[in-house]
Design a protein around this nucleic acid. Structure first.
Length: 509
RNA sequence: GACCCCGUAGCUCAGUGGUAGAGCAUCUGACUUUUAAUCAGAGGGCCGCAGGUUCGAUCCCUGCCGGGGUCACCA
């Protein structure tokens, strides 16, 4: 086998690998009996009694080496953090020789006793050094130092966004804040599950591949099922299936799932993203606003230690109950200084033009209201705010407002200028639902390719009868952004969608 | 999709119309409590790709590829 090496460092490492094998070192052994993680040692070491840590075994990736002739210090990194190790040539002559052939990036196991160095760092003094995996590619080298206040100063951080997203494994190895971000994301989802499970609501799984896509207005990804020779769509939402389960008699169901929307990619959008949807029978959107507040305060407190979310600029967003609640038409009217509910489509269009809101002349009334809101109001909604009671044309799956049939019982939750949640008192009147679908069909015929598709089976389910139900959707990625202070959705998705690199282009069959 | 910015060593970045430089990393040597270890030396580059202008292009121009940002589209 001949390998063309990309650079001298990789060639060098392959040579070292051969030399290790020639010396009888197994470069890829099967296991290592670890007794402690780095953190367990750092947290339990006591200067007045080091004996409990007189024989520990740690394992991890070498992140720094300081060779000083016949003694060497190195740091290894495990999932918990880093710990320094110390090895002396006269104590372990053959393993010290092997260490010559090791590099930053190699994974090793160290068995020994724990002590504190003159410089004050808790360190594992090696009685055994074992190679666990030889690394054949150089890692980005990031150096850290501590200033007099103990703050970590990072030098030459691995920052190239393209490389960080494409080679997330490198990003995770060298950027500890990235590891923390994804740990927090995972804890957030765990906390959400716990919150729902404690209330007896059932986690379910519904189809990703759907013959009819629904539950949201968006362009879908289309695929094809060979077995039945039919098109299928990747789901854009779970809504219609979860409601069928409420019809079926479950009284609280939720799903945390990937949705797929064939639309733009930017700081707030990834073609596949994670959504939470939950439906609870016999409840309405008022109850749901209270529940949403409690959910967010509980989850944020558990993940961040306090009920405060974090913006990318470092400022906090305290979650103080109750969240502000404002009706959509009031919010827009206040921003404009003029009531808008009785305006015609043409008057709304003129209003948009006057306020520099960019809209197509053919835009529907719902679209114009949406544009006015998202341009004039949404950016101002930093503190958590429920925006409620949307016009019925904007919300084909929501129940009409009990006080005004032109509106629906709906809320969207905005935090940090982002839409985080969307919820309704769910429409369960099958005749009204059919009319709404028919209106969507007219929009589709008029060229709106994001309008909803009529789903006869869903209507049949509503005819069987769905109890009054409250339904909520939360954008998990966006919530994770606020949980971690991320500026881009790509920073909270492990493998965000990227255009393939040239060498990785799929070959046409 | 439109516009703006970016692409130089493994990483982070300088730089110039006369085919390249720093720090870290790598290699050689010294060093048995170092810690951005230190000290002395060395190697490493299709300057994103392809054209064009020019005696000569990493630099100027055009196109393409990739990334970032803004807008549009959109949860």
């Amino acid at each position: 086998m001949s390998i063309e090496f990309e650079n001298d460092q990789i060639r060098r490492r392959y040579e070292e690998l051969d030399e290790l094998i020639a010396r009888g070192v197994e470069p890829y052994p099967h296991s290592f009996d670890r007794t402690h993680t780095s953190r367990q040692i750092l947290e339990t070491f006591r200067d007045d009694d080091p004996s409990p840590l007189a024989d520990v075994a740690v394992a991890g990736r070498i992140m720094a080496i300081r060779r000083m002739g016949k003694a060497t210090f190195f740091h290894i990194q495990d999932a918990d953090g880093k710990i320094q190790c110390y090895i002396k040539a006269d104590e372990l002559p053959s393993q010290y020789e092997m260490l010559r052939l090791l590099d930053i990036g190699d994974i090793v196991g160290v068995r020994g006793f724990v002590f504190r160095t003159r410089a004050g760092e808790i360190t594992v003094h090696a009685r055994l050094l074992a190679l666990l995996c030889k690394s054949l590619r150089p890692l980005p080298v990031v150096k850290e130092e501590r200033d007099e206040h103990g703050n970590v100063i990072v030098h030459d951080a691995f920052t190239d966004k393209e490389q960080r997203y494409r080679r997330r494994y490198l990003d995770l190895i060298v950027n500890s804040h990235v590891r923390q971000t994804f740990i927090q994301r995972s804890r957030m989802i765990t906390a959400i599950r716990r919150f729902f499970d404690e209330r007896g609501w059932l986690e379910v799984e519904t189809p990703v591949l759907q013959p009819i896509y629904g539950g949201a207005t968006a362009r879908p990804f289309v695929t094809h099922l060979n077995a039945l020779d039919m098109p299928l769509y990747l789901r854009i939402a779970d809504e219609l299936y979860l409601k069928r389960l409420i019809v079926g008699g479950f009284e609280g169901v939720y799903e945390i799932s990937k949705n797929f929307r064939n639309e733009g990619i930017d700081r707030m959008h990834n073609p596949e993203f994670t959504a939470l949807e939950i439906y609870v029978a016999y409840r309405d959107y008022h109850w749901l606003m209270d529940m949403t507040e409690e959910l967010l305060v509980t989850v944020t407190s558990q993940v961040r230690g306090e009920p405060t979310l974090l913006r990318a600029d470092g400022t906090g967003i305290p979650l103080e109950r109750p969240f502000r609640r404002v009706r959509l038409l009031d919010a827009i009217s206040d921003a404009i200084g003029q009531r808008i509910e009785s305006l015609s489509r043409e008057e709304l269009y003129t209003l948009c033009r006057r306020h520099d809101v960019d809209v197509a002349p053919s835009a529907s009334k719902a679209k114009l209201i949406d544009e006015l809101f998202s341009t004039l109001v949404q950016p101002t909604l930093v503190a958590p705010t429920f925006v409620t009671d949307h016009p019925v044309e904007m919300s084909p799956l929501a129940k009409r407002h009990r006080d005004d049939p032109m509106l629906v019982e709906r809320f969207e939750l905005y935090i940090g200028g982002m839409e985080i949640a969307n919820a309704f008192s769910e429409l369960n009147d099958p005749r009204d639902q059919r009319q709404r679908f028919e209106e969507q069909a007219r929009l589709r015929a008029g060229g709106d390719d994001e309008a909803m598709v009529l789903d006869e089976d869903f209507l049949m389910a509503l005819e069987v009868g769905m109890p009054p139900t409250a339904g909520l959707g939360i954008g998990i990625d966006r919530l994770a952004m606020l949980m971690t202070g991320a500026a881009s959705i790509r920073d909270v998705i492990l493998f965000p969608l990227m255009r393939p690199e040239h060498s990785q282009r799929p070959i046409e069959a």
